[in-house]
Each structure stands twice: as C-alpha cells, then as structure tokens.
Write a protein that binds this DNA or RNA. Sequence first.
DNA 1: TCTGCAGGGTGACAACGTCACTGAACCGCA
DNA 2: TGCGGTTCAGTGACGTTGTCACCCTGCAGA
Lengths: 220, 220
Amino acid sequence: MTENWIDRFPGLAALSPDVRETLVRDSAVVEVPKGTRIFGPGQSPENLLLLLDGAVRVHQTSEQGREIVLYRVAAGESCVLTTACMLAHEDYSAEGLADTDVRAVAIPRKVFDDLVTRSIPFRNFVFAAYSQRITDLFHVIEEIAFQRLDIRLAQRLRTLAGDADEVRTTHQELAVELGTAREVISRQLQEFQRRGWIAQSRGRVSLLDRGAIAHLAEAA
Amino acid sequence: MTENWIDRFPGLAALSPDVRETLVRDSAVVEVPKGTRIFGPGQSPENLLLLLDGAVRVHQTSEQGREIVLYRVAAGESCVLTTACMLAHEDYSAEGLADTDVRAVAIPRKVFDDLVTRSIPFRNFVFAAYSQRITDLFHVIEEIAFQRLDIRLAQRLRTLAGDADEVRTTHQELAVELGTAREVISRQLQEFQRRGWIAQSRGRVSLLDRGAIAHLAEAA
DNA sequence: TCTGCAGGGTGACAACGTCACTGAACCGCA
DNA sequence: TGCGGTTCAGTGACGTTGTCACCCTGCAGA
C-alpha cells in the first residue's frame, strides 16, 4: 500500500515531500468492479477519487428516461465534478458508473481540505481538473447542439474501439452515448454498413474501413 | 470605495474580519458598459469577478458560426468558470458579454490565491460557485438534448421578460439563446401568436397570456 | 424621396425523434 | 433437442427541428 501512485498523476509532480507523505498515508487505494455505481442521486461520495486503472462513465438521465453520457474519467485523472455536483444544493440526476473494473485512490474530504490549504501545487491540480471537466462539458454542449449525428457516431465508434477493430456494444448503448434514440443509431449504422465501413452482428460492431470512418469523424 | 459590498454575497457571510479586510482593501470595484466583452478567446482575465449589479451572459460559438447562451451570471454571483475555462490548456470558444451595464468587484489572482489558502469560508464559496455553474451546464445539456423547443422558448420568454410584459429582442437573438436557427424561432412565435399568447412587432415580443405561456413552460 | 439593410416570413426538403410493431438471436431449461 | 421468454435489431409512418434559398417590410440615413 506504500505504492507510489503519485507519479501516475503528472499534475501532482510538483508536490512537496511532506504533502506527498500526507497524501499517501491518509488516502486509501480502493477497487470497484465494472458496473458499480460510484455516485448518483442520493449517494454523495465523501472522497475525491483519483483513478489508477480503468474508467468511470458519467451519465445524465432525463425525467422521460432518456440518457446521455457526459464524459469519462480515465486513468490518471480525477473525479472532481463528482464531488462538486454533490456539493450543489440541487440534487442532480448525474450518476457515475464504473465503465470497467476500477482501481482508484480515495482522498477523504478532510484530507482534501487540508491539502488544498497547505499545498499550492495540489490546489492547482484541483483547479486544473475542474477546468478540464468544464471544457469537456462545453464540448458536449457544442456537439449535441451543432454537430451532425453521423459525425458524432463515427467519432464515438473510433474512441470506443480504441486500438481494437470492433466495439462490443448494443445500439441502445450507443444511443445513450450520444443522447439519442436507438432507432436513429440503427439507421445510421445501417447506412455505414451499406457503405462497407462496418459489419454488424448482435452486440458487436466491426470497423472494416477505419479510414472512411476517420474521414467522416474529422469532418467536424 | 470602502462600500461594504461583501454583505451582498450570502456565501461570504462567514468570512472572518481579517479576510474581509483583505478582500475589501485589495479588490477594485469596476464598471463596464452593456455589450462589453468581458472575456473570450484570446482574452484571459486576471481577476475573479463578483457581480454587484447587472448580468453577464456566457456564450459559445461553433465553427459554423452558430451560437448558444450557456448561462448568465446575475448580481450576487461570481464568474468562476470564467477563470476556470481560461485556465484550461485548450483555448475555448466561450465568451462573456455584459448583458446590461455591469458593476463588479475584481479580485486579482494573487489575492484570490491568498484568500483560498487562508480562508475556509472563502474556499467553500468558490467551490459552491463552481458547483452551481456546473449544475447550470448540466441543465443546458438536458434541455438541448431532451426538451422540446416550444417549451424551452416559453421558458426563455418568461425569464427574459421578468416582471415586464414584453421582451425587446429579435428572433435572431432568441435563436442564440436556445442554440437554434432564426427560422425555427419565427415559426414557433407565429404559432404562439396564432394562439393569442403573444403579439409581435419588429424587435419586440409582447406577452398577452402569461398563464398559457407558463403552463407550457411548466410542461417539462 | 430614395436606398440600403436588418428584421422577419415562407416553402421545400433533409435530419432527427417517436411510436408501434415485427422478426431474429440468444439463454435457460426441460 | 426443442420450447419459451427475453433482449436486440429492423422498419414504416409521422411529427419536430434544422437548412437553404429567397422574398418582403419597416426603418434610418443620404
């Protein structure tokens, strides 16, 4: 448990030795399995999470039951908005789910407060993390307001696939990614398939022509 | 200039006397006329602004030139995201415009850093302000993704009108408010007019039946 | 009075969302 | 191996929103 995880966070490189010591001593490394609900309405976390491995997906659900993925927290990043949106008076319908198995450092609120007071680099880290998330949200707004769906879908398929050449997901899940309806995804994927860019089977999309997909995705 | 503006900010009520003194001594009250661009791409503010009077409107503009209003900062609130989104590495296309004549307190970055270190209540104020803005952004996302335009337009007409019974604005400006196109606003307003809810003339919308408008707005 | 221009109206069409329903693939189990 | 339930995907019809091209109108300044 004396693992030196701090070096995994570039933003924390400037921490002084005593701050590092506090952080390592008073935080716990936790593991949560894929699918766990990390926070959500009626579930306010008393920790700031720094992700070591895995990813956390943050959703919003509308009253009518439609959903959209707001952003993901990747390894090496922190889950600041998590704490922030819980801090707000309004209870909000955003929730965080473990997208994969997750290993994270949990910094208790008191330790967090202490560090923010004591350490300028730590504070900068926190504010930088906020800024990053906020620009993520700006991105989301720009895309849902102004970007065509075929382009957004192509982009999302690329990022979900990563290095692999297939994505294991349902049309419904893709619809939630983009905040649209399943039927719309089905039709778009059919069009992609018709053009020979992808192949589909139940629960799986294979990318056949990454070049064409990339070309569309970059037609931003 | 020794005006005690601190009491206008409920979140700052808990500040200790010495912090209050620093804040009042080292901050300046500034006035900017309506229409001034307060921040934007290539214009990063070195101050945190606390609004005393007036309102600031924060926009985002897409590459294709379409715009959307993200939120407004009202008197008694602070412009935290302003500083935050400038802090992010990416240069972002959000910009802040004085929606009316504005009077505000400008807290220089150094003073801000000092206060965040010294004062727990000040820090809470800052974090609470962040949370508020972030939930505002969540609201925006929920609305543009899932809410019908007629409902959003009715809501916006109500808030823009305030106590008055008319709104002095063009269709184009309303389109920017909601991130849509002018033609769409024109058609919706015509429908409202046909139902006898509003009357229109060049650059002006009069609310004739606030009850009906409110009813639609609350059909969220 | 003329003229330029911002504001607003309109029709056609494309893109996206919704609804109702159908069929296909998969799973557990007899 | 076949059965039945469930999840996933396909489809047509239709309503809403976005885009494009173009027009008309009211207003201000020359």
